[in-house]
Design a protein around this nucleic acid. Structure first.
Length: 575
RNA sequence: CGGGGCGUAGCGCAGUCCGGUUCAGCGCGCAGCGUUUGGGACGCUGAGGUCCCCGGUUCGAAUCCGGGCGCCCCGACCA
């Protein structure tokens, strides 16, 4: 590809709306262009890298007997109604009606389509196990896109689906896809942590996320400072300290006008963790009381798991008062109406907390769970904080931002049962297909690589995914012989099988060197009279400051050596 | 959905507070000519604008007021 002819250009200045390195550099290098919030075009160079990432993934999927397919982006709503997600999902699922007023959706994932196909194609245990996968555009109207390609509303995902006769089959396949994911990321130069994750809207049992620790990540992982414990913040646990105080008698205390935890702790001169608070929700028309230590926050993702629905909202004051509770002074003790009481695990092990008295202007001292009130459920619904105690070893937990590169799920029969995707086993018995679902976001993966491999001048692509292996600069400046040498070299390098970006533009040297650095191809070659006088062509690796001049016939082998330096693009904290 | 910021030429910005002869400006980029040629050259000439949109106030609006839209950031949320 010739730079003189490249569609799109490099930018000298950083775009005003980009802040993180992957975003600014991918835009400046002319690899991507924004179209709308969280919607991007891939320019020729960006698309090349994306295609190379795709190729790596394809190889790894094929290596575990994946069969590539392509499923539609536009789906009839019926199949989404069959699984119930048409009703469960909010506006992130894009819906519309076609000209015949039929409900349609734009696929945010393809479980429904896969299950539909399975229902049609799979009828016997002899047809399984099987795994299909595709590279397909997903549409998700996210509440907030962010960080360039890190979180977008339209993106290409590799999604794979496994079909097994039973859970044993799924358990057997799962480690294989897990290893394939490790291979993919390693080949891209990344070393994500693998954490247990919340299956969320996907349903199912086991689920793992591949998380690349990075300050610009869209997600948060919890990592123990000393042991192996690590988890997504959405389902990380904490070991709460066990309080050994004696239970003291409950006493009412006047707290006029004090209706916040901070105010209460201040007024009574106690730490916030010696208080408890109530957060009210309405879920499916039912009032839910959640009780948690005053210094902690409810994690609504965990709560959604407990409630079995993500459709809940803070309760209205009227609903709260209906059960005899007083907002600001609410207490789980002595409620009059119907309300489900869910207590966080931080509560039972704490002693003598201050809680509301269900009476305006009053609180109760020395409230103890078990003695003074009981819950319908005691569960973990707290948001983990930096410094909380590790549930495995008790040491400190650290919160780290991370980029979710991939997510794998054991779906089980979450989709096959409601959609009736069944087969006959060897005994003639009808059984639901056992499924798994496995995703990698390609653009996000590209952004993650850019986040990890760049410097102040530009991108530094690992050879495995670089938009070109070689950036060939011609510094002819009117010297016809130099120009011809460069042209010939361009041709011969391509004949050798290298992908070459040939900077044949009529630009000054500085412009070309800077663009070479920006775009970040692994090898830079310079044809110039200066190099020629020293006997050849200058060669330099993008990641090094050193360059050397070597005879033209020695180039191929040295380029191959540079392009083979994949060990340079591994990780320091490998799994 | 809460909080904050921004919207003026392809890109980056000034002008907005205090309305009017610095009000259509600057830098980069772009086109032509000449000089230059190993780390983002220089000179001359030139093209390029619904000042985000709609409405209002005013003799007069990029500038003030009202409404809307779009984009970015933090949080909530999120396979």
């Amino acid at each position: 590809m010739r730079m003189s002819n490249l569609f799109g250009r490099t930018l000298r200045e950083t775009p005003a709306d980009a802040e993180i390195p992957s975003h600014t550099l991918l835009v400046r290098a002319g690899m991507i262009r924004p179209l709308a919030a969280g919607v991007y075009s891939y320019m020729p160079l960006g698309w090349r890298t994306l295609r190379r990432i795709e190729h790596i993934i394809r190889e790894e999927m094929d290596a575990i007997d994946g069969q590539e397919v392509s499923m539609p982006v536009m789906h009839p709503a019926e199949i989404w109604k069959e699984t119930g997600r048409w009703y469960e999902l909010g506006p992130e699922l894009v819906r519309f009606q076609d000209r015949g007023n039929r409900d349609m959706v734009l696929g945010m994932t393809h479980e429904e389509v896969v299950t539909y196909l399975t229902r049609q194609e799979i009828s016997s245990y002899r047809q399984m196990p099987a795994m299909i996968y595709q590279f397909q555009t997903k549409i998700r109207d996210e509440p907030r896109s962010r960080g360039g390609l890190i979180r977008v509303r339209e993106f290409i995902m590799k999604d794979a689906y496994s079909l097994d006769v039973d859970f044993d089959g799924l358990d057997e396949f799962y480690p294989r896809i897990y290893q394939a994911y490790v291979n993919v990321f390693e080949r891209c130069g990344l070393d994500p942590l693998v954490v247990e994750a919340d299956p969320g809207m996907m349903g199912g049992s086991d689920s793992h996320e591949f998380m690349l620790v990075n300050e610009n990540g869209e997600d948060t992982v919890v990592v123990c400072a000393s042991c192996e414990y690590k988890a997504n913040r959405e389902n990380a646990h904490v070991a709460w300290p066990v309080d050994d105080e004696e239970m003291r008698p409950t006493e009412e205390v006047s707290t006029p006008g004090i209706d916040t935890i901070a105010g209460l702790a201040d007024f009574l001169d106690i730490p916030e963790r010696k208080t408890s608070k109530i957060v009210f929700y309405t879920a499916d028309g039912e009032l839910v009381f959640t009780v948690i230590r005053g210094d902690l926050d409810i994690n609504e993702t965990k709560l959604a798991g407990v409630l079995g629905t993500s459709e809940f909202e803070p309760a209205s004051e009227a609903a709260i008062e209906e059960v005899g509770a007083v907002p600001g002074y609410a207490s789980p003790i002595a409620l009059e109406g119907e309300a489900k009481i869910i207590v966080d695990e931080s509560i039972p092990s704490a002693r003598n907390l201050v809680a509301g008295a269900n009476k305006a202007g009053y609180h109760l001292r020395n409230v103890n769970y078990g003695r003074d009130y009981e819950a319908d459920e005691v569960v973990d619904i707290a948001t983990v904080r930096d410094g909380d105690a590790c549930p495995q070893c008790g040491d400190r937990l650290k919160l780290e931002r991370a980029i979710e590169l991939g997510h794998i799920f054991k779906l089980g029969t979450r989709y096959s049962e409601p959609m009736g995707a069944t087969y006959l086993d060897a005994d003639g018995e009808e059984r639901p297909v056992v499924m798994g679902s496995y995703g990698i976001g390609l653009g996000r993966l590209m952004a993650a690589i850019a986040e990890k491999y760049h410097d102040e001048y530009g991108l530094i692509w690992p050879p495995s995914v670089a938009p070109a292996g070689v950036y060939l600069i011609s510094l002819a400046s009117g010297d016809e012989e130099i120009g011809n040498t460069a042209e010939e070299l361009y041709q011969s390098l391509r004949d050798e099988g290298f992908s070459v970006l040939f900077d044949d533009r009529d630009e000054r040297a500085g412009v070309k060197f800077n663009d070479a650095d920006l775009i970040g191809a692994p090898v830079r070659l310079t044809v110039s009279s200066r190099a020629q006088k020293r006997g050849g062509i200058e060669i330099k690796a993008r990641w090094s400051d050193a360059s050397e001049v070597i005879p033209i016939e020695d180039l191929p082998s040295l380029i191959r050596e540079y392009l083979g330096s994949s060990s340079r693009f591994g990780g320091q904290h490998a799994e």
